[in-house]
Design a protein around this nucleic acid. Structure first.
Lengths: 351, 351
DNA sequence: CTATCTTGATAGAACGATCCAACATCACTT
DNA sequence: AAGTGATGTTGGATCGTTCTATCAAGATAG
């Protein structure tokens, strides 16, 4: 890029004895150019070592093949999987993805939006950071940037959305635990104000209510989710006079950390407390015991988000769409044995 | 980007009654413009809702703030951590990162290189896919693209490099197992031809040799690493007449999968077989038992890679640098107990 | 009173591509 | 022989910005 005498389309034209326009047509594979000319031009391209300048072309055509993707935290396998799916879908349509992390910081998120738009992305997929100001989205709206909001249900009906059904996911998980015979079910981790978490708590609450179980606020523990937070969360409820026999964990990370917390207190996850996480990250299958989880279908959400934004890039005026993916309960060892049945522990590593 | 009548610097000029050049100077915060004019122009910018077109500017100035990052697999926490560190370092220097995945596919990697260069990145950080053809790098070299090779030691002395010391890492791990009294030590996972793996096997070999232990080729199992591959790998050596009492695992993923394989055969990882992984991914701390590992210092490698490429962007002619980070042995439960001491199993979840 | 220096602002060319309208050829018609 | 079409090629304008050189006007100097 920074070489003083970059080879341009003009150099090719001069070298092959045709016009600049002809070279441009050859580059774009136009059928209107004779085979002889095409060969001549291609020979010059190889000879001079030409590299196409897509930015220049984009400037002229007012287009772009780039989609900006803003996610909160790359280290979370849920988002990693989402990203992978988005990249694949974008690739299929000839787009490619600029990936950046907001680190859950609304201000950084705002800067990133500006930067990406300035760099001329064709569209944006955003997983809104908790506490995102409306202003960021107002700007995007007036700038007419095609945007798809993903994963986190930011309340804004001006943009397409692709995300999970958090409420239903929590209902599913809670009902499963209820059916196993649990009556004291905790909800561990996550912070109030995070819409995903609040929706899950709401679903959990509804399922309890429908089962006629009185809701105990002490069983809902708030904390900023991290790789360690589950330890403290579960120890909090273990200290109660009437501790829970099962727990929903805000996400799979928290669940795995809760397993550690249990072991620190001489309890065996799965046997002494049933656990179900949320997300469906691949690691859940590798934990010990393997972790039951409600998969939010990150791949599906990602594919859908990419399709939505690409579709919107192509037709700015089509009506707003909301694609909510139904979750899938994935049962594994951590929620196998009901508490009250004092049957001997089953072999939890069959085969 | 695609609106028919985008607001440009010309519109601002017209609206505020100054020249195009003046607006440009205001945008770049030039000190040669009077405060009165600056205010006038800024007012127009707000009024018309202008967005800066950085691509156009880059075309004119022949510069770019973007760094392309090509990694093999986003789903691997090692790379995720590497990426995070690169992003942070780039951000500090005013650059931002286009992240793409090669999926370990040399052809895709080649396409991505082309695409990124065409899009005008200022430089490239590449973790070479296994089996990368020399040709890809030859092109980058003749195009004079600033490149830093990261993680995988691709044999090319024309580019800067930032990566781990795989040989030393394996030596460290092997010596630790030897000191614990193990004599039958396996090396599980990874494929011949992958330089990281081959270096690790070499270090393992040297350590065994120095300890006067005859190398048994049956203890080295090759496989394409995945989240499940360790199961088969370990079952292979368990089937031997004289099975190993300890194993080095190609990476932490493999190690965690090996734990599953052991349990499937009624063996307890850590107690019945000591395990040490490579990478130092955060999940290693969350496994059960917690996983001993040789941390390759992904954050350090990332920071260094970003610094190297940015430095090279600024001064193309400085000599080639190779930054090799020394690994760090992180001992946890999976390599606690030596096999031959038949002491009672220690509590492996101390409070 | 002319000469020189500052300060602030500007016009036109340039970056590397594409678009548009025009233009040769050459081959068929009629 | 002139008209019509198809085929292949082209020069100039253009995208939105910055660069270079220049300039007007006022200040300072001799």
């Amino acid at each position: 890029m920074r070489s003083e005498n970059r080879v341009t389309i003009n150099d090719i034209a001069r070298h092959s004895g045709v016009s600049r326009s002809t070279v441009s047509l050859v580059l774009r594979g136009s059928s209107r150019i004779s085979k002889a000319t095409v060969d001549k031009v291609k020979a010059s391209i190889d000879a001079l070592g030409y590299t196409y300048n897509r930015s220049a072309a984009n400037l002229r055509t007012q287009t772009s093949q780039a989609i900006g993707l803003i996610i909160n935290d790359l280290m979370n396998p849920f988002f990693t999987e989402l990203t992978a799916a988005i990249e694949e879908a974008a690739d299929r349509e000839g787009f490619f993805v600029y990936l950046v992390q907001s680190n859950e910081d609304p201000e950084r998120q705002n800067k990133l939006c500006t930067s990406l738009v300035e760099h001329g992305v064709a569209g944006l997929i955003i997983c809104p950071a908790t506490g995102s100001p409306r202003e960021t989205f107002d700007r995007l709206h007036t700038q007419r940037v095609p945007v798809c909001i993903a994963v986190r249900p930011f309340p804004d009906d001006r943009f397409d959305f692709s995300g999970p059904d958090n409420f239903r996911a929590a209902e599913l998980a809670t009902n499963e635990l209820l059916e196993l015979g649990h009556e004291r079910i905790a909800f561990l981790g996550g912070e109030r104000g995070n819409p995903s978490r609040d929706d899950r708590v709401a679903g959990y609450f509804k399922a309890l209510q429908q089962a006629g179980i009185t809701f105990d606020p002490e069983l809902v523990v708030e904390s900023r989710p991290s790789r360690q937070s589950g330890v403290a969360d579960v120890e909090k409820v273990l200290g109660l006079p009437n501790p829970p026999t099962a727990a929903l964990c805000y996400n799979d990370f928290v669940a795995i950390s809760v397993m550690h917390g249990l072991r620190r207190n001489e309890m065996e996850p799965g046997r002494d407390m049933a656990l179900i996480g949320f997300d469906g990250m691949p690691e859940a299958e590798m934990s010990h015991p393997t972790l039951s989880t409600v998969s939010l279908r990150p791949r599906l959400i990602g594919t859908e988000a990419a399709n939505l934004v690409i579709d919107r890039i192509k037709s700015a005026d089509r009506p707003i769409l909301r694609r909510v993916q139904s979750p899938e309960l994935v049962l594994r060892e951590s929620s196998e044995a009901p508490r009250q049945s004092n049957s001997p522990t089953r072999n939890r590593n069959p085969r």
